[in-house]
C-alpha cells in the first residue's frame, strides 16, 4: 500500500449527498477591546455520515471554536454552515447532536444515572424509558453498577465516561467531542480511545473530535483536519482508510507513521506562517 492509496487530499471534494455537516467559506471574528480577533477564516469542510473527523492544531487555532459553531454555541460572522441540511440553531433545537466537553460537567447533586437521564428529562421522555436508556448508555461505556454513585465518588476517567454516556443517551447521530480525554493519563486515554472506536464502529454515528494529540487523531479518524492559528483556518485535510475495527496495534505500522508525519508537517507549516 502506498501513501497515495492510504491518504488523499479531499479539501476540494464537493459535498456529497449524505453530508452531515457542510461548511462553506465560514469565518468568525470576535470583537474585543484590543481589536478584532479572527478566530476562523475561510473554512470549507464537509463531514459525511459515518465519518470520524479529528480537528488537530495548536492552541488558539480555532478547532474548539469550529466545533462550537457546529453546535450553535457560537455564531459564525460570515459564510454558510448547515447541519443535516438545516441551520445550526435549528439542528440544536432538533437535538441533532450530543456534545462532550473537555471537562465531564456532571451535575454534583445528581447521581450518575440522573446525570445521564438529564437530557432525556429535558426532552420529556417517560421515566421508564429514561432509566432503560441510561442503563444502556452506561453499559456502552462500561459504567453499569455505578448508577447510584455521585460524580465526585468516581475517578476522572469514569466521570468523563459518564459524560459520554450522557451524550449517547438520547441517541443523536452526530457526536461532537471537544478534547474529551485531554486531562486523562495515557493508559486511560488509550483505553477510552479503543472503547470510543468500538462504539463508533458499532453504531455508525458521525463523530467530530477535537484533539491536540497526533497519535490520537491518526488512530481514531477517517479524516484528519489540520488547522493553524491566527487566523484559524484549515491547512490540510487527510483521509485515512484503516479498517473501522482497528486496534491499537496499527500505531506501529508504516502507514500510521506516514500519516502522523504528514500531520506533523502540516502543523509545522502552520506554525512557520505566523513567524
Amino acid at each position: 500500500m502506498t501513501l497515495k492509496e492510504v491518504v488523499n487530499n479531499v479539501a476540494s471534494m464537493p459535498a456529497s449527498k449524505d453530508a452531515v455537516v457542510d461548511i462553506k467559506n465560514l469565518s468568525l471574528t470576535f470583537q474585543t477591546a484590543d481589536g478584532p480577533v479572527y478566530a476562523l477564516s475561510d473554512v470549507d469542510l464537509t463531514i459525511n455520515e459515518g465519518d470520524f473527523v479529528s480537528f488537530i492544531g495548536p492552541s488558539g487555532c480555532g478547532k474548539t471554536t469550529l466545533l462550537r459553531v457546529i453546535a450553535d454555541l457560537e455564531r459564525a460572522t460570515g459564510g454558510d454552515i448547515s447541519i443535516n441540511g438545516v441551520s445550526p440553531e435549528q439542528a440544536r433545537e432538533n437535538r441533532a447532536y450530543g456534545y462532550v466537553f473537555q471537562a465531564p460537567a456532571l451535575l454534583p447533586w445528581r447521581s450518575i444515572e440522573r446525570n445521564v437521564t438529564l437530557p432525556l428529562e429535558i426532552m420529556e421522555i417517560s421515566k421508564e424509558e429514561r432509566i432503560k436508556r441510561a442503563h444502556d448508555a452506561l453499559k456502552l461505556v462500561e459504567l453499569n453498577g455505578f448508577e447510584k454513585k455521585f460524580p465526585w465518588q468516581l475517578s476522572g476517567g469514569m466521570q468523563q465516561r459518564a459524560s459520554i454516556a450522557r451524550a449517547l443517551s438520547f441517541d443523536a447521530d452526530l457526536l461532537l467531542m471537544d478534547e474529551p480525554f485531554g486531562a486523562l493519563d495515557e493508559i486511560v486515554r488509550d483505553h477510552l480511545n479503543e472503547q470510543l472506536l468500538k462504539l463508533w464502529a458499532r453504531t455508525n454515528k458521525t463523530v467530530a473530535f477535537v484533539t491536540h494529540s497526533i497519535p490520537e487523531a491518526v488512530y481514531l479518524s477517517t479524516k484528519i483536519v489540520v488547522m493553524s492559528p491566527r487566523p484559524g483556518r484549515i491547512i490540510d485535510v487527510i483521509e485515512t482508510d484503516f479498517p473501522r475495527d482497528r486496534s491499537l496495534d496499527i500505531r506501529e505500522t508504516p502507514e500510521f507513521l506516514e500519516i502522523a508525519h504528514r500531520v506533523r508537517e502540516g502543523l509545522r507549516a502552520g506554525h512557520s506562517n505566523d513567524e
Binding site: 453546535a71 450553535d72 454555541l73 440544536r92 433545537e93 432538533n94 437535538r95 447532536y97 450530543g98 456534545y99 466537553f101 473537555q102 471537562a103 460537567a105 451535575l107 438529564l118 437530557p119 429535558i122 426532552m123
Partner: peptide, 14 residues
C-alpha cells in the same frame, strides 16, 4: 452555575 454547564443545557435546547 459554570459556563460549561450552561453550554451543556444549551446543547439540549433546554
Amino acid at each position: 452555575a459554570g459556563k460549561l454547564e450552561r453550554d451543556l443545557m444549551a446543547t439540549y435546547a433546554s
